[in-house]
């Protein structure tokens, strides 16, 4: 019996360590490789770079136009996140706090969007954006990202709003709040956690989106970071280590976001998909 428990513990530890190594090791290798010279890269993959070539990073930043890619991505992701959070909270407010005839139908129609494979809709998105005269603009991506995650955001935010007790609202009504004041002064502040959760998700998915960035934009002026990474291979045809440095730099904002909003991400994932 005791041996069994010990064996179980060892097996458990072994499995957890294997996944830990699998997750971390390739990334550490990438960071290490990004600090090597191109000659060192051909040798032993596990040898530490001596001395570390921080010049690769400077090189990467310049030749990949990372500053431009970054500012495009920041602008697009933040705008899409703000717009998405606003539109979704407004809709969730009406659907959650008021009972009216078409409410439930509207809500269930909206959230079927969560499971639609939006990559199947490439052609209509392409024609729609052209029709609106938005092809190759940042607005095209802002609008698309706002719309594509709307079902998930409404679902998450409405879930939070549903748990607000009715008495709070009655108090607000007695204080003379109208429909709009109640939204901005009572409901939004209380459902902050839900809105932040939805927004964090929205930010990460906009920041990391690739397919529609490729489809709806073409010039370098509006190119996002993810699109930029795709061109690394042709920009750094022989300078592999600088390309690795560029990849490492591109990951940093996601890492920063993750360490700041880890709890929102994990609770949002649970909220957003356990029922979706």
């Amino acid at each position: 019996m005791k041996i069994n428990v010990l064996l179980e513990k060892m097996l458990s530890r072994a499995i957890l360590s294997l996944f830990l190594i699998y997750t971390l090791f390739p990334m550490l290798w990438l960071v290490m490789a990004s600090l090597k010279t191109n000659v060192e890269l051909l040798g032993d993959p596990f040898r530490f770079p001596a001395p570390p070539q921080f010049g690769n990073y400077v090189n990467a930043f310049k030749s990949a136009h990372l500053a431009l890619l970054f500012s495009n991505s920041v602008l697009i992701s933040f705008s899409a996140t703000a717009l998405n959070a606003l539109v979704a909270s407004m809709a969730a407010y009406v659907l959650s706090r008021y009972k009216f005839r078409f409410g439930p139908v509207i809500f269930s129609t909206l959230i079927t969007g969560i499971l639609v494979p939006v990559s199947a809709l490439m052609v209509p998105y392409f024609t729609l954006i052209r029709m609106l005269g938005l092809y190759d603009t940042k607005l095209a991506l802002i609008l698309t990202y706002t719309a594509v995650s709307l079902p998930l955001s409404v679902f998450i935010i409405k879930g939070f709003m549903d748990s607000i007790p009715g008495e709070l609202e009655e108090a607000a009504l007695l204080d003379g709040c109208d429909f709009y004041q109640k939204f901005f002064r009572v409901i939004v502040p209380i459902s902050r956690t839900g809105i932040v959760t939805a927004a964090t998700f929205q930010f990460l998915s906009s920041w990391n989106e690739f397919l529609y960035a490729m489809l709806l934009t073409s010039s370098e002026q509006v190119r996002t970071l993810q699109m930029g990474i795709r061109f690394f291979a042709s920009q750094f045809t022989t300078d592999f280590t600088s390309m690795f440095a560029a990849i490492v730099i591109s990951i940093i904002p996601s890492v920063a976001m993750y360490s700041l909003f880890q709890n929102q991400i994990i609770s949002g994932l649970t909220q957003g998909s356990v029922k979706g």
Partner: peptide, 16 residues
Amino acid sequence: FLLPALLLFAAFFLYP
């Protein structure tokens, strides 16, 4: 309040 969400949903889900 519902209109923006419904318009976007119509343009990016129903119509497509």
